[in-house]
Amino acid sequence: MKQLLSWALLAALYPSLLLAAENEGRQPLRWQITPYLGYGSEIQFDGQDDSGNASADAGSLFGLSIGKETADPGLIEVLFSHQKSTLSPSQGTDLNISYLHFAGALIFENSLRPYVGAGIGLSHFSAYDSTTRPSLALALGLQPRLGEHLALRAEIRGYGTFISDNSSFICDPKLCNLYLQGDMVTQAQANLGLTFRF
């Protein structure tokens, strides 16, 4: 009876022992929090017909990502960034640009830990009025580890936001005649942050 119980216990524990053996020598998969600062490129808005064009000036931004490491190795995360930009020509108000994305990255294991990533989510533009539109993103970056619980993160991330015709969030329609056209506006970001792993 004792021998039967021993074999049953070994059979029950076998999957756990096998998983432990497979993960031996690997670093544990951790959660990551990365506050970052960055610089967003200019955004060009094309106006309909003779309504003119407008642009949002390049400028500084801040952001935060929260993610979970995967065994690929990779990362699944939620990212948020925000930028306040001046409009040219002036529309009497600034443009606030925010991105909220669900993203993934594939990391290549070497000392610099380069990665490629993609994301999908929402872009929010707010000036005279506001609009929230779907958007996509692609990223290239590096995440070298400074220790078990700390890493540096540097990346270039490009966003493409799908806009609708006749969008007039930039200015008061009673004071200006800027109605946007086109299917997509794009922006690039250069970001630098510090990753905390726990």
Rank of each mutant, 00 (worst) to 15 (best):
P89R: 03
L4M: 12
F196C: 00
Q3P: 07
L150Q: 09
P73N: 08
V185N: 05
A127M: 00
N23T: 15
S126V: 06
A188G: 14
F169Q: 02
S6E: 14
N96H: 15
F45R: 04
L95R: 06
L112A: 14
L136A: 14
T93E: 10
L136C: 10
R133C: 01
A151C: 10
P173Q: 04
C171Y: 08
Q187L: 11
D46Q: 11
T195H: 02
E69H: 02
R153Y: 06
H82T: 07
A103R: 15
N191W: 07
G141F: 08
S85E: 00
S6A: 09
F198E: 03
S41Q: 12
P28E: 03
A58W: 03
I107S: 13
K68G: 04
T86S: 10
A151E: 09
Y39G: 04
Q91H: 11
D50Q: 15
D94I: 00
K174Q: 12
G63D: 06
A105C: 10
S98C: 09
Q181W: 04
L194R: 03
P114F: 05
R153D: 12
A151K: 10
D49V: 12
G193M: 02
F198S: 01
Q91Y: 10
C176A: 09
T34N: 07
L138Y: 10
P134Y: 03
A151W: 11
F80C: 01
G25V: 05
L106E: 14
A137Q: 15
Y128E: 06
Q143Y: 05
T186I: 13
L178M: 06
L136P: 03
L95I: 00
A58D: 12
A137M: 14
E22F: 15
G38V: 01
P28M: 02
L100Y: 11
Y128T: 02
S55E: 14
P28D: 05
A8V: 03
M1K: 10
L18E: 15
L87H: 04
T93L: 03
L13A: 14
G47T: 07
A118T: 04
V116R: 02
N53R: 08
S55K: 15
R145P: 06
L194W: 06
Q83R: 12
N110S: 14
P35C: 02
T34D: 01
K2T: 13
S88C: 01
F169A: 02
A188D: 09
K2P: 10
I120K: 06
G47K: 05
A137L: 14
G117N: 07
E155Y: 09
L13N: 08
M184R: 11
S85M: 03
